[in-house]
Every structure is written in C-alpha cells, then in structure tokens.
Simulated assay, not measured.
Amino acid sequence: MVKYQDETLDRTFAALSDPTRRALLARLGETDSLSVSELAQPFAMSLPAIMKHLDVLTDAGLVAREKTGRTVACRLTARPMEQAMNWLNHYAQFWSANLDRLAAFVEEDPWPTAPQPQPTLPNDRASRSRAVSAPGRKKSTPRGPTRKT
C-alpha cells in the first residue's frame, strides 16, 4: 500500500473543496505569476476575502507568495497536487479494476428477458369463458431465471 501524508492530503482537498479557491488556482494556472490585485480582479468579493482564500491555498502548499516592495505575487506550487493526484490515481486503478470485473461478470451470463404477456381482445370468447368458469383459480407464474455456477 502506498503511504501518504494524511495532513497534507487533508489540507489539499479542503483547499480544493471551495469553488472560489479552484477558480483562483485556474487563474494562476493560466499565467506564471500574478499579483494579488490582478488575481482578485474578476471576482465579485473584497480583497480581504480573496486574501483569506489565498491563506488557505498557501497553508495547503498550493500557492507560494512572494513580496516585492508593496506587491505580493502568487504562483502555483506542484508538490501537494502531485500527492493528491497520486492518491486519486491509486484509487482510480482500484475502482477501474473492480468495475471491469463487474462488467465482465454481467456480460458473461446475461439474464433472459421475461416473456411479455399477450394482450387479450375483448371479443375473444375463449379467454372470457375461461375467466368466468374458474374465478377462484390462480394462474401460475412462469419460472424465474436460474443461475448456473
């Protein structure tokens, strides 16, 4: 089993759980580095709110900030995302293999379809006479499918 640092993964997935933070990461992915003001420009929220989102992303290690004079530049860092992708890929392989086995099992022995009942016409005297002659008699149901092992 592959070992992961749980705290790092927890912080990464918690940071990615918010759509605003994912949008900030997407903007940073388009360019190499953006100032906080440039990063916050398309969002309809205050600069302090953007700063709080950036704090979460920085704590998770997804964003690195560098201050030059009065300007703070942000850029993406790859390490936490690589760990998250490795974790996701591990479980994607697990589920893919299990779902492939399930698909093979289902396709191997398809269940027969149940026969459709024949509609009776109102003018059919034979069916009406049988229904009248044995009112308490139950009709037997067709036998269900059996599995071969």
Score class of each variant (00 low, 15 high):
A23I: 00
P19A: 07
M45K: 03
Q93M: 02
S96L: 02
A92F: 04
D100C: 05
I50W: 10
K67W: 03
Q83R: 12
R79L: 09
V36I: 04
D100V: 02
S140Y: 11
L24Q: 07
F13W: 05
N123L: 14
A23L: 05
P119W: 13
A114C: 10
A14I: 11
G136F: 15
D55F: 01
E107V: 10
A44I: 02
R65Y: 03
V56H: 05
T20A: 10
Y91H: 05
R101F: 04
T120V: 15
P119M: 13
L39I: 01
D32I: 10
P135R: 15
R128Q: 11
T77H: 01
V106P: 04
E108L: 13
P142F: 08
T20N: 08
R125A: 13
S37D: 12
P19T: 06
F94D: 03
L62T: 00
L34P: 04
F94K: 07
E38L: 07
A26W: 06
S17N: 14
T120L: 14
E38T: 04
F105G: 09
R125V: 11
K138M: 11
S17M: 12
A126N: 04
P122C: 12
A44H: 03
E107D: 02
H90I: 09
A64V: 05
V36M: 04
R70F: 06
T68V: 11
P48T: 06
V56M: 00
A134C: 13
S17Y: 11
L76Q: 01
D18V: 05
P42Y: 10
S127F: 03
E82A: 14
A40G: 02
L88W: 08
D109E: 12
A44Y: 02
D109R: 13
M85L: 15
L121F: 10
R128V: 09
